[in-house]
Design a protein around this nucleic acid. Structure first.
Lengths: 211, 211
DNA sequence: TCCACAATTAAACGTTTGTTTAACTCTAGA
DNA sequence: TCTAGAGTTAAACAAACGTTTAATTGTGGA
């Protein structure tokens, strides 16, 4: 068939339907707790189609992770590199990343939870992406900021801060239905920017001056 | 046998050996990827002993999580409540928590990754602990700090910051063997305190004044 | 000594797992 | 019109899963 046309033939749709369904299920119930039959049923394809298109379940996961990490890394490269003001660059990076996390929340959850265990294979894969991320932060942020925090501490720290809203959201929403809910992403992005750059207390430089 | 003595009889040892081994394996390879037979072999007990002592695999996990969350909550109650200076209380809380995370790293990893999926049962369990944590922060931190950040945002944010060092450590260590490694916990605790209270840039109140 | 009972064991239970096979349908290109 | 090949299907594979059963061992208290 050769797929010379660009979209919507039935075969292409199956592949993408599997992919889209897999992200949702993996995020909701985890990679291991999601069976091939369950995924096939949810994506409305035959069981064998998953192995036909992706080979193995692990390779299906790998494709999801590649999508997420490459896009995340692109944002970091675009927003963090350059000669502009470091604070402005950080502000833009954090803001764009949070919007990215919001748009691809399921990808984020899969990447940070399913990936968080340490098969030697998976560990090497994670290190590959982490290395590039740390490198960008090291060469474009740490020096320009003139801080003592090392890039290997700062990178996970900032990533955790930006992601926490999305990783904890199911719990937080469950805590109190109706009451004051989570802020929109615009507000949340500003919060993370503010805390990361200036700390929780907004107006002060806060060397112990409370109550 | 009644277990009137306080320790070291063979039966007690089996139960605790299972528990200790489970935490390590669950943290390293995940709850689902760890089979009962594998756990039994690693703990050097018969397969049936796990169900004999804990009933089901899920209840074994629940015991691990209870241990972790109750201790974490105790620290929050002890260090965050009271009338002293908010900054000093936060500083002590962050410091003690990070030492706690370091001592119980495997527990932390199990609690934050294996628990991060959303079976309705698990979600309710997480909400139970999260609710108490948010309440403590709300009543003892947010008001005293006089900040606009809501407790439902601040609590996950701070927890993420404190935990990031431990969740990402396998990746970060893999990134470059030999080179400048992660800081000790004393230093890391100070870093989190500093960033959370004053932002990444130490000496300035940093309203755009770089390069 | 003997009894009651906790601990331990080997074996089997029925499901479910990810993957593979071989046959079949459909369609684009010669 | 015919054919090569991609898409799709039902069925089966061995392996691993969590759990249960029934029998055995070992020990403290009567």
């Amino acid at each position: 068939m050769e797929v010379t046309g660009e979209e919507s033939t039935k075969e292409l749709r199956s592949r993408e339907r599997i992919l889209a369904t897999a992200v949702v299920l993996f995020a909701r119930q985890g990679f291991d707790r999601t069976g091939m039959r369950e995924l096939a049923r949810a994506a409305d394809v035959n069981l064998a189609m998953i192995n036909y298109f992706f080979g193995t379940k692990k390779k299906l996961l790998a494709e999801i992770l590649d999508t997420f990490f490459s896009e995340y890394l692109t944002i970091a490269r675009v927003e963090l590199t350059g000669d502009g003001d470091v604070f402005l660059r950080l502000e833009k990076f954090i803001s764009r990343t949070i919007y990215f996390f919001a748009a691809r929340r399921d990808y984020l959850v899969v990447a940070l939870t399913d990936l968080n265990h340490n098969d030697p294979d998976v560990l090497e894969y994670k290190a590959m992406w982490g290395r590039q991320m740390v490198e960008i932060v090291e060469q474009n942020v740490c020096g320009a900021l003139g801080v003592t925090v090392t890039p290997k501490v700062m990178t996970p720290l900032l990533t955790s801060m930006m992601a926490s809203r999305f990783l904890f959201s199911p719990v937080v929403e469950k805590i109190s239905a109706g009451e004051a809910d989570l802020p929109d992403f615009e507000t949340y992005a500003q919060t993370v920017v503010a805390v990361f750059l200036h700390g929780v207390v907004p107006g002060s430089d806060s060397s112990h001056a409370s109550v």
